[in-house]
């Protein structure tokens, strides 16, 4: 049992160190700063600028969260504060089912529904032209994927709020909405932030569904309707097909390391915020 535990504890470190060792070759050749902030991605000439991928990832994740965040927050408030208890009981398995759908299915759904919707309706409506395979398509698919994930955490967060706090506010003459807005949301704030943080770490690393709809063009995206190329897609698409281009595998490992570090930071930050919430309650 202890051996199993030790292995589990060491796993992230082993992974991180492994990625670092693999990417050292490239780091010895070029500076990290240059790699992260150059937009020039030409592996054949030994140019590995990660900026297009980093920016794509940031865009897709940010927009996905901007879509999913408010939806989740409003739904969680409704389910825990307004809805009858049986609605919440009914919704929880629904949310779990949604969370359990393999991501490739979301990807197919994105190709069949979201991509044509964007190219035929949304983009023309806004006066733009696009194939549909774009940052915004990736973001929408991603948003749908992280909704159950964030929603589950938010429901837990709102459930931990003590009834007495609600009663205290109501007994001072606050209406239900005032109580939610001024007291409950404020009390739950660290929890909401960490739910979003965990959502980000989940979204940032999501690979296959995004890869299928985002277009995968290695240049810095100039708008939401342009194709992008997030980090996980870069790794998934190219590893195994990199022939013998020097340093290419090292570059992909560095991309993986960047991904790993970002996701871990968001994860740890969010967990820290949650633990602070629990202390306070």
């Amino acid at each position: 049992m202890i051996i199993g535990l030790v292995i589990v504890i060491l796993l992230p470190f082993i992974l991180g160190i492994g990625l670092y060792i693999k990417s050292i070759l490239l780091l010895e050749d070029q500076s990290l700063f240059q790699l992260l902030f150059s937009g020039d991605w030409r592996p054949l000439s030994g140019k590995f600028g990660f900026l297009p991928f980093i920016i794509s990832s940031v865009w897709v994740t940010t927009i996905a969260l901007m879509i999913a965040g408010p939806i989740c927050l409003l739904t969680a408030v409704h389910l825990t504060q307004y809805a009858k208890p049986w609605v919440l009981k009914l919704m929880q398995p629904v949310i779990d089912i949604l969370a359990g759908i393999p991501s490739v299915i979301f990807g197919v759904w994105g190709i069949l529904v979201i991509v044509p919707f964007i190219s035929d309706y949304l983009a023309p409506f806004l006066g733009k032209q696009t194939s549909g395979y774009s940052i915004i398509a990736g973001a929408i698919v991603l948003a749908v994927m992280v909704i159950p994930f964030i929603l589950n955490i938010l429901i837990e967060v709102f459930k931990t709020l003590p009834d007495e706090l609600k009663e205290a506010s109501l007994s001072l003459g606050a209406t239900k909405w005032q109580t939610i807005k001024l007291v409950l949301l404020r009390k739950a704030f660290p929890g909401v932030i960490s739910a979003f943080g965990l959502g980000v770490s989940r979204a940032f690393g999501e690979t296959i569904a995004v890869l299928m709809v985002v277009g995968n063009v290695a240049s810095i995206p100039k708008g939401l309707f342009q194709p992008g190329y997030p980090l996980p897609a870069l790794i998934a698409n190219n590893y195994g097909e990199m022939l013998s281009i020097p340093l290419y595998d090292s570059a992909l490992m560095l991309a993986a390391l960047v991904l790993f570090v970002v996701v871990m930071l968001f994860n740890m930050g969010s967990r820290f915020a949650i633990s602070r919430l629990e202390e306070k309650v």
Binding site: P162, E164, L165, E167, A168, S169, L182, R186, K187
Partner: peptide, 10 residues
């Protein structure tokens, strides 16, 4: 209303 434990508003 005063409850069993104090619940100050956040």
């Amino acid at each position: 209303l005063l409850s069993q434990r104090p619940y100050p508003l956040p």
